[in-house]
Design a protein around this nucleic acid. Structure first.
Length: 83
DNA sequence: GAGCTGACATGTT
DNA sequence: CAACATGCCAGCT
């Protein structure tokens, strides 16, 4: 069970319409100061089972997405999560 | 095995 | 108020 797995689990547990910040995910994963690693992990994560699009920055910004930030925003807006 | 990279956050300038 | 610089962690090359 690596930190990566914890992050996957946490992100996979995010319900629709809910968005968590990288810091929150890192905290739930067990390392509040590992928000850096969270971004790095999600970045390499191409697993569709992990709704990485529900993880945003603390500033409320999108951050990034493997399939394009615009797509990420579109999904979040569809789920009535942000904006 | 060591070093580099990054979808960040916080503090100063 | 906005931009720059620093610090932090885990994963990847």
């Amino acid at each position: 069970m690596s930190f990566r797995d914890s992050v996957y689990k946490v992100v996979s547990g995010i319900p629709e319409g809910k968005v968590l910040t990288y810091k929150e995910v890192a905290e739930k994963a067990g390392s509040p100061k590992a928000y850096r690693a969270v971004g790095n992990i999600l970045n390499k994560n191409y697993n569709p089972s992990v709704p990485c699009h529900r993880v945003i920055r603390s500033d409320g910004k999108i951050g990034g997405y493997n399939r394009g930030e615009e797509n990420k925003v579109a999904i979040l807006r569809k789920e009535n999560a942000i904006i």
